[in-house]
């Protein structure tokens, strides 16, 4: 009995630690006062101001656009990597392939961001493209580091499922492409969706790499939020937090749903 008391206490304290800051943020978003820390009364004022703040709305649209495009590209390429690593034996310089597809997972964002920026500048010096940085360069950088996350999810899923199903289909006269589209892809589809959701969230949330590779007309939401809260507090950001936290948590739940679906 004593040990189960300790157990529930530890779990309760752990969850409290994880959720307390989020609840504080949501609580203060309803504060009427412009001075964030002084409670004046319940109000939806800052939600109103948020929806009329053009800078935030515009950056939000840019962020969603970049996240959707880079998640889609990263998912296509990540699925190819995951499939290659599990199902294709002959990969030239296999260790190098693994190095390329897994290092972005551990490389500090700052180093990745710097390398992308210097790459774009050098590329521009050599071939005159991209002449200025912006949404395109952020998109390329995000694809590059999201690929790795999709690849490990797909790799894990393909390692799990029985290769015999594919072989049986081939014995029954399906050709290679047909097996891929009719058998393999439908089986790993939930993992593909999960990978896309993960890549989407990572891109939406990224500040460091985007700060390096941004340019005129490409202020993403994290860049705008960071400039607002770097030195102080902002009641509008509080309201934004509450909405964003809610939306992202829902995406997270979907991710769990898809990633777990065929596990058992």
């Amino acid at each position: 009995m004593k040990s189960s008391l300790i157990k529930s206490t530890v779990i309760f304290l752990g969850l409290f630690f994880l959720y307390f800051p989020i609840l504080v943020l949501i609580f203060y978003s309803f504060n009427e006062n412009k001075r964030v820390m002084v409670w004046k009364g319940f109000s939806l004022r800052w939600y109103n101001e948020l929806f009329t703040n053009e800078q935030i709305i515009e950056s939000f649209i840019i962020s969603i656009k970049i996240a959707a495009f880079s998640a889609t590209f990263a998912t296509i390429l990540g699925v190819m990597i995951g499939y290659s690593l599990v199902r294709i034996r002959k990969i030239p310089f296999r260790s190098f392939y693994i190095f390329l597809s897994s290092t972005p997972l551990v490389l500090p964002e700052l180093i990745l961001g710097l390398s992308m920026l210097l790459f774009f500048i050098s590329l521009n010096n050599v071939i005159g493209f991209p002449s200025s940085r912006g949404q395109l360069t952020i998109f390329i950088s995000h694809v590059t580091f999201c690929i790795a996350f999709v690849a490990i999810i797909i790799q894990a899923r393909l390692t799990d499922f029985n290769k015999n199903i594919e072989e049986a289909a081939m014995d029954l006269g399906y050709n290679y492409t047909k097996v891929l589209y009719k058998i393999t892809l439908p089986i790993i589809l939930p993992s593909i969706i999960a990978g896309w959701l993960l890549a989407f969230t990572i891109s939406l949330d990224d500040l460091v790499v985007a700060s390096f590779t941004t340019g005129p007309g490409a202020n993403t939401l994290p860049i705008v939020v960071f400039s607002k809260v770097r030195l102080g507090l902002s009641p509008e950001v509080n309201a934004l937090s509450a909405i964003l936290m809610f939306a992202l948590i829902i995406i997270g739940l979907f991710y769990f749903y898809f990633n777990k679906k065929f596990k058992h």
């Binding site: 959720y19 820390m37 994290p222 809260v229 937090s241 992202l248 769990f256």
Partner: peptide, 28 residues
């Protein structure tokens, strides 16, 4: 429990750091 532990990780990184700025203020 596992979902509960990981869910905060899905919410925005920048805003979770910002939350501590609010908590640790002088009048926080």
């Amino acid at each position: 429990l596992l979902v509960l532990v990981v869910i905060p990780f899905w919410s925005s990184f920048l805003l979770r750091v910002y939350a501590w700025k609010i908590i640790l203020q002088n009048n926080g």
